[in-house]
């Protein structure tokens, strides 16, 4: 038996993000349910979010983000040999969306599968992609995080509908002579599987806010620190910290304990809401567009969410 030689390391060549055009402000929500802009901003830190209409599917958003990342990478569609989509909100369980998205992007017959690790999904998918490139199972991987959470929300439940939103973010991963995607630190807490769930196909997403908040603000800094240690990177080396955009108060708590004094902290949730698996690549694509992180900067990403699941790794941005 023979094995491919693979690559010494893997790196992200480009990012791309896509949001639906429809902006829903806190005032818009306050007209329909018992809430206020002040209540939402103080609890979760969101000012507005994007919601896809019936004319824009999960596949549409994933394809748009993937197309932008592919264009920015300088590669052709034919260079991609694996497509991985992280999502927990497919409209149907069969087929997966990665094969459909690949076809619509003109990527001919790549390996294609979806990953469900909820809001941690992008970090899981990125880890799998980096390992595939290093092992030689793929040369260029398109990793997409995409969610249409709006279709799983009870729009009269003010504990969820003010938080979750729609969007997609993507990254192209390729070979590198030096490592630029660090070792993943991942784990789960299945005893808390009820904390965030869609219990059946005709119900909506529910969340035990206090349970998730306590877990996120007390258990995840250890994973963040482990990811730094395993990559040999100190908090002071970080150009940015991009945790999943779950809740601004969780983001601030994680950042405060991380102690990365020079790092820009992603606060994309303010205008994007919580887009689950899309939030990290979407935030990164927007931060890079605005020039907030220099090329080659080291960024700690930390995904966490339903399962409960979490994953963290250090990346160098393109």
């Amino acid at each position: 038996m023979m094995l491919p030689s693979g690559s010494a390391g893997a790196r992200i060549l480009s990012f791309g993000g896509h949001q639906p055009s429809n902006v829903v402000t806190n005032e818009d929500l306050a007209e329909k349910i018992d809430t206020t802009d002040e209540w939402i901003q103080s609890r979760v830190g969101i000012a507005e979010r994007r919601v896809a209409g019936p004319e824009e599917s999960l596949q549409d958003m994933a394809t748009a983000a993937g197309g932008k990342a592919l264009a920015a990478s300088g590669l052709e569609a034919g260079d991609i040999d694996l497509v991985v989509v992280a999502t927990c909100t497919p409209e149907t369980p069969i087929p997966n969306i990665s094969a459909t998205v690949a076809d619509r992007m003109g990527i001919a017959s790549p390996g294609a599968f979806d990953v469900n690790a909820a809001c941690a999904g992008f970090c899981y998918a990125l880890s799998v992609a980096a390992d595939a490139v290093r092992a030689g199972s793929a040369r260029h991987v398109l990793v997409i995080g995409a969610e249409k959470l709006s279709q799983w929300l009870d729009w009269t439940d003010r504990t969820t509908c003010v938080i979750f939103a729609d969007g997609a973010g993507a990254a192209v991963v390729g070979p590198s002579e030096t490592p630029a995607i660090g070792p993943v630190v991942w784990g789960s807490a299945g005893d808390k599987h009820e904390a965030i769930s869609i219990a059946s196909r005709d119900t909506y997403l529910t969340q035990q806010g206090q349970t998730v908040f306590r877990w996120a603000t007390t258990q995840l800094n250890a994973a963040a620190n482990d990811a730094l240690d395993r990559a040999g990177v100190s908090p002071q080396d970080l150009a940015a910290f991009v945790p999943h955009q779950a809740n601004l108060r969780i983001v601030e708590s994680l950042a405060r304990k991380l102690g990365a004094t020079d790092a820009v902290v992603a606060r994309d949730i303010v205008t994007a809401g919580n887009t689950s698996a899309a939030s990290i690549p979407l935030a990164l694509s927007r931060m890079l567009e605005r020039g907030e992180i220099a090329s080659g900067g080291k960024v700690l990403i930390l995904g966490f969410g339903a399962g409960l699941t979490y994953a963290a790794q250090v990346i160098e941005v393109p």
Partner: peptide, 11 residues
Amino acid sequence: IDSLSMVEIAV
């Protein structure tokens, strides 16, 4: 004090 601050106080 809101419900999330109560969690922080409990911790």
